[in-house]
Design a binder for these strands. Structure first.
Length: 178
DNA sequence: ACCATGATCCGCT
DNA sequence: GCGGATCATGGTT
Protein backbone atom coordinates (compact mmCIF):
# COMPACT_ATOMS: atom_id res chain seq x y z
CA UNK A 1 0.00 0.00 0.00
CA UNK A 2 1.20 3.46 -0.90
CA UNK A 3 -0.33 6.70 0.28
CA UNK A 4 0.34 9.90 -1.69
CA UNK A 5 -1.65 12.77 -0.19
CA UNK A 6 -5.31 11.73 -0.41
CA UNK A 7 -4.57 9.06 -2.93
CA UNK A 8 -4.15 5.41 -2.14
CA UNK A 9 -2.32 2.98 -4.38
CA UNK A 10 -2.38 -0.74 -3.70
CA UNK A 11 -1.00 -3.81 -5.38
CA UNK A 12 -0.27 -7.45 -4.76
CA UNK A 13 3.38 -8.47 -4.78
CA UNK A 14 3.74 -11.27 -7.31
CA UNK A 15 7.50 -11.54 -7.86
CA UNK A 16 10.48 -11.00 -5.53
CA UNK A 17 14.16 -11.79 -5.22
CA UNK A 18 16.19 -12.39 -2.04
CA UNK A 19 19.60 -10.77 -1.55
CA UNK A 20 21.49 -12.13 1.42
CA UNK A 21 24.73 -11.94 3.37
CA UNK A 22 27.75 -13.57 1.74
CA UNK A 23 25.91 -13.20 -1.54
CA UNK A 24 28.10 -11.83 -4.34
CA UNK A 25 25.05 -10.57 -6.21
CA UNK A 26 23.94 -8.40 -3.30
CA UNK A 27 24.70 -4.71 -2.99
CA UNK A 28 25.71 -5.46 0.60
CA UNK A 29 28.43 -7.95 -0.39
CA UNK A 30 31.31 -5.49 -0.21
CA UNK A 31 30.18 -3.88 3.00
CA UNK A 32 28.31 -0.77 3.97
CA UNK A 33 28.66 2.29 1.73
CA UNK A 34 26.74 5.51 1.32
CA UNK A 35 24.52 4.00 -1.30
CA UNK A 36 23.57 0.77 0.43
CA UNK A 37 23.58 1.88 4.06
CA UNK A 38 19.81 1.44 4.46
CA UNK A 39 20.24 -2.23 3.64
CA UNK A 40 22.10 -2.60 6.92
CA UNK A 41 19.44 -1.09 9.12
CA UNK A 42 16.81 -3.02 11.08
CA UNK A 43 14.38 -5.02 8.95
CA UNK A 44 11.10 -3.37 8.02
CA UNK A 45 12.51 -0.40 6.13
CA UNK A 46 12.52 0.32 2.42
CA UNK A 47 15.85 0.31 0.56
CA UNK A 48 15.56 2.21 -2.73
CA UNK A 49 18.49 2.41 -5.13
CA UNK A 50 19.10 4.21 -8.39
CA UNK A 51 20.49 2.33 -11.37
CA UNK A 52 21.21 2.52 -15.10
CA UNK A 53 21.14 6.28 -14.97
CA UNK A 54 17.36 6.47 -14.90
CA UNK A 55 15.65 3.81 -12.78
CA UNK A 56 14.80 3.14 -9.17
CA UNK A 57 14.23 -0.25 -7.57
CA UNK A 58 12.74 -0.95 -4.13
CA UNK A 59 13.64 -3.58 -1.56
CA UNK A 60 12.27 -4.62 1.81
CA UNK A 61 15.10 -4.77 4.33
CA UNK A 62 14.80 -8.10 6.14
CA UNK A 63 17.86 -8.52 8.36
CA UNK A 64 18.71 -7.46 11.87
CA UNK A 65 20.55 -4.19 12.30
CA UNK A 66 24.02 -4.42 10.73
CA UNK A 67 23.38 -7.56 8.66
CA UNK A 68 22.53 -6.31 5.15
CA UNK A 69 19.78 -8.44 3.66
CA UNK A 70 16.78 -7.42 1.58
CA UNK A 71 14.05 -8.62 -0.75
CA UNK A 72 13.71 -6.88 -4.11
CA UNK A 73 10.14 -6.22 -5.26
CA UNK A 74 10.21 -7.19 -8.93
CA UNK A 75 6.56 -7.10 -9.91
CA UNK A 76 3.15 -6.18 -8.56
CA UNK A 77 -0.43 -6.71 -9.68
CA UNK A 78 -2.21 -3.33 -9.54
CA UNK A 79 -5.34 -3.31 -7.36
CA UNK A 80 -6.21 0.28 -6.40
CA UNK A 81 -5.35 3.62 -7.93
CA UNK A 82 -4.75 2.36 -11.45
CA UNK A 83 -5.46 5.72 -13.07
CA UNK A 84 -2.80 7.34 -10.90
CA UNK A 85 -0.36 4.59 -11.76
CA UNK A 86 -0.99 5.23 -15.44
CA UNK A 87 -0.29 8.88 -14.94
CA UNK A 88 2.88 8.09 -13.01
CA UNK A 89 4.02 5.71 -15.72
CA UNK A 90 3.06 8.07 -18.51
CA UNK A 91 2.98 4.97 -20.68
CA UNK A 92 4.81 5.33 -23.98
CA UNK A 93 1.90 3.66 -25.71
CA UNK A 94 -0.66 6.26 -26.70
CA UNK A 95 -4.03 5.83 -25.07
CA UNK A 96 -6.32 4.31 -27.66
CA UNK A 97 -9.63 2.63 -27.04
CA UNK A 98 -8.65 -0.81 -28.27
CA UNK A 99 -9.35 -3.34 -25.54
CA UNK A 100 -6.32 -5.47 -26.28
CA UNK A 101 -4.14 -2.40 -26.01
CA UNK A 102 -5.73 -1.44 -22.68
CA UNK A 103 -4.76 -4.86 -21.42
CA UNK A 104 -1.20 -4.36 -22.57
CA UNK A 105 -0.98 -1.02 -20.83
CA UNK A 106 -2.34 -2.52 -17.63
CA UNK A 107 0.29 -5.26 -17.62
CA UNK A 108 3.00 -2.80 -18.53
CA UNK A 109 2.21 -0.68 -15.49
CA UNK A 110 4.05 -2.78 -12.91
CA UNK A 111 5.65 -5.85 -14.53
CA UNK A 112 9.22 -5.01 -13.55
CA UNK A 113 11.09 -3.58 -10.56
CA UNK A 114 11.66 -0.11 -12.02
CA UNK A 115 8.16 0.00 -13.53
CA UNK A 116 6.70 -0.70 -10.11
CA UNK A 117 8.70 2.15 -8.58
CA UNK A 118 7.59 4.54 -11.27
CA UNK A 119 3.92 3.55 -10.98
CA UNK A 120 3.99 3.82 -7.18
CA UNK A 121 6.05 7.02 -7.23
CA UNK A 122 8.89 5.52 -5.24
CA UNK A 123 12.31 7.14 -5.67
CA UNK A 124 15.25 8.55 -3.74
CA UNK A 125 13.09 10.25 -1.13
CA UNK A 126 11.48 6.99 -0.11
CA UNK A 127 14.82 5.35 0.70
CA UNK A 128 14.77 4.41 4.38
CA UNK A 129 10.98 4.69 4.80
CA UNK A 130 9.68 2.80 7.82
CA UNK A 131 7.23 0.25 6.48
CA UNK A 132 5.18 0.43 9.68
CA UNK A 133 4.27 4.03 8.85
CA UNK A 134 1.41 5.30 6.69
CA UNK A 135 3.33 6.26 3.55
CA UNK A 136 4.29 2.77 2.42
CA UNK A 137 3.23 -0.45 4.08
CA UNK A 138 2.81 -4.13 3.45
CA UNK A 139 -0.25 -6.01 4.62
CA UNK A 140 -1.35 -9.63 4.45
CA UNK A 141 -3.59 -10.61 1.57
CA UNK A 142 -5.11 -13.86 0.44
CA UNK A 143 -2.68 -16.69 1.18
CA UNK A 144 -1.02 -17.99 -1.97
CA UNK A 145 -1.19 -21.78 -2.40
CA UNK A 146 2.36 -23.10 -2.25
CA UNK A 147 1.72 -25.00 -5.48
CA UNK A 148 1.53 -21.68 -7.28
CA UNK A 149 4.83 -20.35 -5.97
CA UNK A 150 7.67 -21.03 -8.38
CA UNK A 151 11.37 -20.21 -8.06
CA UNK A 152 14.26 -19.56 -10.39
CA UNK A 153 17.64 -17.90 -10.64
CA UNK A 154 17.66 -14.18 -10.10
CA UNK A 155 17.52 -11.85 -13.09
CA UNK A 156 20.12 -9.40 -14.29
CA UNK A 157 23.04 -10.64 -12.20
CA UNK A 158 26.28 -12.44 -13.12
CA UNK A 159 27.35 -14.20 -9.94
CA UNK A 160 25.20 -16.29 -7.65
CA UNK A 161 23.18 -17.69 -10.54
CA UNK A 162 23.16 -21.10 -8.85
CA UNK A 163 20.98 -19.69 -6.06
CA UNK A 164 17.30 -20.03 -6.89
CA UNK A 165 16.23 -16.99 -4.94
CA UNK A 166 13.67 -15.49 -7.27
CA UNK A 167 10.09 -16.35 -6.28
CA UNK A 168 6.98 -15.66 -8.30
CA UNK A 169 3.34 -16.64 -8.70
CA UNK A 170 2.87 -19.12 -11.49
CA UNK A 171 0.74 -17.77 -14.32
CA UNK A 172 0.31 -14.28 -12.93
CA UNK A 173 0.37 -11.89 -15.91
CA UNK A 174 2.46 -9.27 -14.10
CA UNK A 175 5.42 -11.57 -13.52
CA UNK A 176 8.29 -10.12 -15.55
CA UNK A 177 9.53 -13.41 -17.04
CA UNK A 178 8.80 -17.11 -17.02
C1' DA B 1 11.62 -15.78 -30.37
C1' DC B 2 16.29 -13.46 -29.50
C1' DC B 3 19.78 -9.54 -29.87
C1' DA B 4 21.58 -4.74 -29.95
C1' DT B 5 21.25 -0.18 -28.71
C1' DG B 6 20.32 4.19 -26.53
C1' DA B 7 18.93 6.75 -22.67
C1' DT B 8 21.67 8.80 -18.72
C1' DC B 9 23.53 8.79 -13.60
C1' DC B 10 26.10 7.53 -9.70
C1' DG B 11 29.17 4.84 -7.02
C1' DC B 12 33.24 2.64 -6.64
C1' DT B 13 36.16 -3.93 -6.34
C1' DG C 1 36.43 5.22 -16.52
C1' DC C 2 33.30 1.51 -16.36
C1' DG C 3 29.39 -0.97 -15.56
C1' DG C 4 25.01 -1.74 -13.34
C1' DA C 5 19.29 -6.18 -9.32
C1' DT C 6 16.35 -1.69 -16.25
C1' DC C 7 13.28 -0.32 -19.95
C1' DA C 8 11.72 0.75 -24.57
C1' DT C 9 12.51 0.40 -29.29
C1' DG C 10 13.92 -1.43 -33.51
C1' DG C 11 16.16 -5.03 -36.14
C1' DT C 12 17.01 -9.90 -37.43
C1' DT C 13 16.15 -15.16 -37.40
Amino acid sequence: MRRIGNHLLAGKIVEVEAYRINDPASHSFHGKTGRNSIMFCEGGHLYVYFTYGMHFCANIVTGKEGIGEAVLIRAVEPLTGIEIMKKNRRSPIKSLNLKSLDHKILINLTNGPAKFCQAFDISREENGTDLLGSEISIVDGEPIPSKLIKRSSRIGIHSGLEKKWRFFIKGNPWVSRK
